[in-house]
Write a protein that binds this DNA or RNA. Structure first.
Length: 940
RNA sequence: GGGCGUAUAGCUCAGCGGGAGAGCAUCGGUCUUACAAGCCGAGGGUCACAGGUUCAAAUCCUGUUGCGCCCACCA
């Protein structure tokens, strides 16, 4: 028959063919009216600014595997896609563009800036979506959402207003994390602390009315200008006389008290005395509240020193001020020493800027009330996390949760639905920079009275004034993300989609956003929907480079998934992209060849063992591309031997044959197939993707290709009578494997599947073909007999290799010594197999008492003594050495077994079948030893 | 300071109570009519260390060490 598959497997050619077909056929669309059981995953929305990286590649792979698997199983499978507006990230990116044009957002103003961001979003925001399609993502694109869509914005306002009305959202002035570069407040989670090398400056503060000095140590000497006290431990004997006295704050004209505070001063640390800066340190702020200290703000929102820092320092940056303070202290003789010190400065996750604690009014979500049911849902198992260890992390954070700062001083995002009356709440507006302008630089005072509402209020309910200004802040991006599982389905409307697909089935994401996102979805879902948003959370591993380093552009160890898919030539890359992949190109100076999306997906599935980071090695991707090539070639083999018009693949049907028609090999492969179908399903149900992929890999390569196809050859080339059945089995097994493999490698399986012969009743695509169901065990007895033949073949191949008998050389005679009566028919039945696989031309089955030929090579297989008379073909010394080695190995095994069986404890306490198996093993090994010894003796 | 993960062949990793496994790399043999990105065979490991539980431990427990991660306001 005409060849339908090209001779070579060319991944990218195959992959370019099918995605549009699937789309046109509407296979990705999930119907909320369907009577099928729902299965739903909502995508972790990638940043709309994003470009595909390995983190995306792994979630696309795993979520697509799950979705395709469930879809084939007959579920109404919805994988709901979308993107996130990613407040800071997007705003910063567009601001950078503006900077290139010599402009900035203040110059444009809020309205035009936002237009500009939207324009960018419309033009470029689809990149990441297109890239996910390259990987084969079977999302329902008709339902694609964006966190700033009208619908989702409605949901955000609804959630905000309800939480406010319930008293769970409030506005309050507190010390918050200020990022002076992006000019916004950050939540605790957006602040990172890594240890850095710094110094500890020891400064002497003169005690007033005495010659004494009190020594404090600090990592931030510039903050001393805002000190409000020096604290010591009340029990510290060194300072008993000083508590209550005052000291002169150097470089200023101020005098500050020496106070006792057991919570902030540790007598073991340094001098035991600590300077207190309530306005710029979280500990000191708390201490200030306890002791009623003044909060002196010496650093402004621009991270420059304020007037309160004193004339000499006002206007300096924090770094400049530090230098000057240190210099001035030195000059005053008050800087006692500087010691190197490792500390943990707080940095903005986004800008890496040093975070400055600032006293500012912000919007907060009260978390303890929301957290409680979310903890309970996981405790009770209504939501389970895989791997399980993450539940601990989740509990730990949830049980110590602090209120969530949700306002951001950005423009790109959901503007807070709160208004202020400019008539009766005059003090509400603070204009910080542009005189007289409410927008863009206005800020809202801490005592203001917000009018929170779903729509802009027409007038002030207090005074009737119509002069209302909306709160300029926007919400933390994660606020809208927290609503994602139901806002994407039309909430607050009670839509049919919500009815059908909420709660969703699986949340699949990375563990680094367990607090940012998963915890918040749990809380919001339970609060607004009354149900946990998903029953299982599966956390995939973090992808690192092959040496275990986190991938980073600056470090240069990035592996770009699209480079893997399409191949990459470093010469063709722009400088910055080449730099990001620098280390990869050191190993692959010529770049890498196209591996294809299927190979990348299969690799990621194979790597996805639970609870372990992935060290991605291109070599492994290449290995799995070879595997797909193997599948391709095997398919070509099968199709080559099909006859036109016959042997249609009956998708999903059981093979229409009975045991009597099957050869040993047929029965064996069908039994193995049954087991692999079972195994793959169980593994996928348990989220053990690597195990599922491994099972198909082993079956296809090591059983179907290495054995069954080889065993089928003598039949296809010679045995007319058996041909038809063998062809059916070849095709049936291949077709089933394609379906098992489809969720992992959707493109190549579709390509091959489409080329197979089909009936009128066949589905239009493998992706809507039924998932293989495990067949009942019908052929296990025959399969076991075949396994025995395989053992004989392996033993003979080993013997041939070890005895240096060239593969081309036929073995004229094989003698099998055994007293088993059932052996003769088995060997008779497998005559063709033995000849084809071992080049044994003839064999004889003899009782163990029969005499052996003088010169022969001997080996044991499954209790059978195999003897190949090979006079002149083998080197006697080598054969002696080979037997000696085999005997030594047996001997050591025998000793271990004998020791085990002589252990009274083992014999009496181990399960009977274990003991029996051990005894049988011992007997078999002893028999084998005796035969090999005899063979050795015969060689003289 | 608290918590978590991890240590298995040269490399990357499975296995997680009863015979130490895979892929890559290495060595030997093979261009056999699906596939040399292949086929056949081989070598290679005190399963980090020390204790314990058990008839039996790579696997369970305790401790130690190395590596990695997360949380936490200690100057």
């Amino acid at each position: 028959m005409a060849e339908k598959l090209a001779k070579d497997y060319r991944a990218r050619e195959v992959e370019s063919r099918w995605y549009s077909f699937w789309m046109e056929q509407g296979f990705f669309h999930a119907d909320e009216q369907s009577g099928r059981e729902p299965f739903c995953i909502v995508i972790p929305p990638p940043n709309v600014t994003g470009k595909l990286h390995m983190g995306h590649a792994i979630f696309v792979t795993i979520q697509d595997i799950l979705t395709r698997y469930k879809r084939m199983q007959g579920f109404e499978a919805l994988w709901l896609p979308g993107t996130d507006h990613a407040g800071i990230a997007t705003q910063v990116m567009v601001e950078r563009q503006l900077a290139k044009e010599g402009s900035n957002r203040l110059e444009l103003g809020r309205k035009r800036f936002l237009e500009r961001v939207w324009q960018w979003k419309e033009e470029k925001g689809g990149t990441i979506i297109e890239q996910m399609k390259v990987l084969g993502a079977s999302c329902d694109w008709e339902r694609e959402r964006f966190t700033m869509d009208a619908g989702l914005s409605t949901a955000v306002r609804e959630a905000f207003v309800r939480l406010f009305e319930e008293g769970l959202i409030y506005r309050e002035e507190r010390l918050v994390n200020w990022d002076p570069v992006t000019q916004t407040v950050l939540s605790d989670l957006e602040v990172e602390q890594d240890s850095e090398q710094g110094s500890l400056w020891h400064i002497a503060y003169p005690v007033e009315g005495s010659e004494q000095q009190i020594v404090v140590a600090t990592t931030r000497p510039e903050t001393m200008l805002g000190d409000a006290a020096v604290a010591v431990h009340p029990d510290d004997p060194r300072y008993q006389g000083l508590i209550g006295k005052r000291c002169a704050l150097p470089l200023t004209k101020r005098s500050i008290p020496i106070i006792a505070d057991p919570l902030v001063a540790d007598p073991q640390f340094g001098s035991g005395a600590v300077k207190i800066t309530p306005a710029h340190d979280f500990n000191d702020y708390a201490c200030g509240l306890r002791n009623n200290l003044e909060k002196i703000q010496v650093i402004g929102l621009d991270a420059k020193m304020t007037e309160a820092a004193g004339e000499a320092y006002c206007g300096l940056s924090r770094e400049e001020c530090r230098e000057k303070v240190v210099e001035d202290l030195k000059a005053a003789g008050l800087l006692l020493r500087i010691e190197p010190y490792t500390f943990m400065p707080a940095r903005s996750q986004r800008s890496r800027a040093l975070v400055e604690p600032m006293l500012l009014p912000q919007w907060w979500v009260k978390m303890d009330v929301l957290a409680k049911p979310a903890v309970e849902a996981v405790e009770s198992g209504r939501t389970t996390m895989i791997p399980k260890m993450w539940e601990k992390t989740y509990f730990n954070w949830m049980n110590n949760i602090r209120d969530w700062c949700i306002s951001r001083q950005l423009w790109w995002g959901h503007q807070i639905p709160a208004w202020y009356c400019l008539d009766c709440d005059k003090d509400a507006i603070i204009v910080s920079k542009l005189e007289g302008a409410v927008d863009p630089e206005m800020r809202i005072a801490s005592g203001a009275h917000p009018l929170v509402s779903r729509e802009q209020p027409a007038k002030c309910p207090r005074c009737g004034g119509q002069n209302l200004a909306q709160d300029p802040d926007v919400l933390d991006t994660w606020f809208s993300s927290g609503l994602w599982p139901f806002s994407t389905m039309g909430w607050p409307e009670q839509t049919a989609t919500l009815q059908k697909f909420y709660p969703t089935t699986v949340m699949e994401t990375a563990a680094d956003i367990i607090f940012f996102w998963v915890a918040r979805m749990m809380m919001m879902g339970l609060h607004f929907m009354g149900e946990t948003p998903f029953s299982t959370v599966y956390f995939h591993a973090l992808i690192r480079d092959k040496d275990g380093q986190k991938m980073s552009k600056t470090y240069g160890n990035v592996v770009d998934p699209l480079h893997v898919v399409y191949g990459v030539d470093p010469e063709q890359l722009p400088e910055d992209e080449r730099a990001a992949c620098r280390l990869l190109f050191e190993d692959y100076p010529q770049g890498i060849e196209a591996q294809g999306a299927d190979a990348l997906r299969f690799t990621l599935a194979m790597y996805a063992a639970q609870g372990r980071d992935i060290r991605l090695d291109i070599k492994r991707v290449e290995g799995y591309r070879s595997f797909l090539n193997k599948l391709w070639q095997a398919s070509r083999f099968v199709m080559m031997h099909l006859e036109e018009g016959s042997h249609e693949a009956e998708v999903g049907a059981q093979l229409d044959v009975d045991a009597s028609q099957l050869s040993l090999a047929d029965a064996w492969i069908l039994e193995r197939l049954r087991l692999v179908v079972e195994h793959v399903s169980t593994a996928l149900n348990d989220f053990r993707f690597n195990e599922a992929a491994q099972a198909v890999y082993d079956f296809l390569w090591n059983e179907y290709c290495d054995w069954y196809i080889e065993l089928s050859k003598p039949v296809l080339y010679a045995a007319e009578a058996q041909k038809a059945v063998t062809r059916s089995v070849l095709l049936h097994v291949l077709e089933t494997v394609l379906r098992l493999l489809h969720p992992f490698a959707p493109f190549v399986t579709e390509e091959i599947w489409q080329a197979l012969p089909k009936t009128a009743a066949s589905p239009a695509s493998i992706m809507v073909a039924p998932w293989p169901e495990p067949a009942p065990a019908r052929f296990s007895e025959q399969a076991a007999r075949m396994q025995r033949v395989i053992g004989i073949v392996q033993a003979l191949r080993n013997l041939r290799g070890e005895a240096n008998v060239p593969p081309g050389k036929a073995i004229p005679m094989l003698q099998v010594f055994s007293d088993e009566p059932q052996l003769l028919p088995l060997l008779e039945e497998s005559r063709g197999y033995l000849r084809a696989l071992t080049k044994v031309e003839d064999y004889a089955c003899l009782p163990t008492s029969a005499s052996r030929p003088k010169v022969s090579a001997t080996t044991m297989a499954d209790g059978l003594e195999l003897s190949v008379p090979l006079e002149g073909l083998i080197d006697l010394d080598e054969e002696r050495a080979r037997l000696g080695k085999a005997l030594a190995k047996l001997e050591s095994q025998l000793q271990a077994m004998a020791k085990k069986l002589s252990n009274q404890g083992f014999v009496s306490r181990a399960p009977e079948e274990v003991v029996a198996a051990e005894r049988a093993k011992l007997e078999a090994s002893e028999a084998a030893k005796a035969r090999l010894q005899a063979a050795l003796e015969r060689l003289g």
